[in-house]
Simulated assay, not measured.
Amino acid sequence: MTHSRRMTVLRAVVEDYIDSQEPVGSSSLAKHHDLGVSSATIRNDMAALEDEGYLVQPHTSAGRVPTEKGYRYFVDRLATIMPLSAAQRRGISSFLRGSVSLQDTLRRSARLLANITGQVAVVASPALSKSTLRHVEIVPVSSHALLAVIITDSGRVAQHIMTVDDMPGDDELTRFCALSNAVASGLTLSHAAERIRSRATSVSGSLTDGLCRTLEDLATDERAGELYMAGTSRLAHQPNASDLAPLLDALEEQVVLMRLMNTLSEEDTDTGVGVAIGSETGTPGLIHASVVTSGYGRTADDGEDGETSAHHQSLAFVGSIGPTHMNYMTTISAVRAVARYLTALITPQEHPQ
Results as ranks from 00 to 15, higher is better:
residue 60 T to E: 09
residue 181 N to T: 06
residue 179 L to V: 06
residue 228 Y to H: 15
residue 87 A to G: 12
residue 226 E to D: 13
residue 194 E to G: 03
residue 344 A to M: 10
residue 254 Q to C: 01
residue 197 R to Y: 01
residue 76 D to T: 07
residue 28 S to T: 11
residue 225 G to H: 08
residue 252 E to A: 12
residue 31 K to P: 00
residue 124 A to S: 12
residue 74 F to H: 15
residue 237 H to A: 14
residue 302 D to F: 00
residue 63 G to S: 06
residue 238 Q to Y: 14
residue 348 P to T: 04
residue 172 E to R: 04
residue 58 P to Q: 11
residue 269 T to F: 09
residue 238 Q to R: 15
residue 231 G to Q: 08
residue 31 K to F: 09
residue 214 T to N: 01
residue 138 I to M: 08
residue 42 I to R: 08
residue 333 S to V: 01
residue 282 G to Q: 10
residue 100 V to R: 02
residue 67 T to M: 04
residue 253 E to S: 09
residue 49 L to P: 09
residue 60 T to K: 03
residue 321 I to M: 08
residue 93 S to L: 09
residue 105 T to N: 01
residue 70 G to D: 11
residue 286 L to K: 04
residue 111 R to L: 12
residue 188 T to K: 01
residue 249 D to V: 11
residue 96 L to S: 08
residue 306 G to D: 09
residue 218 L to A: 05
residue 323 P to A: 09
residue 317 F to Q: 07
residue 167 M to N: 07
residue 265 S to P: 09
residue 348 P to N: 01
residue 161 I to G: 04
residue 26 S to M: 02
residue 352 P to F: 13
residue 23 P to M: 03
residue 165 D to V: 04
residue 177 C to Y: 00
residue 353 Q to A: 02
residue 152 T to N: 10
residue 221 D to I: 06
residue 170 D to K: 07
residue 209 D to M: 08
residue 129 S to E: 11
residue 344 A to P: 09
residue 202 S to T: 15
residue 343 T to A: 03
residue 344 A to S: 15
residue 198 S to D: 12
residue 183 V to D: 07
residue 147 L to M: 14
residue 230 A to T: 11
residue 110 A to V: 05
residue 70 G to K: 02
residue 335 V to S: 07
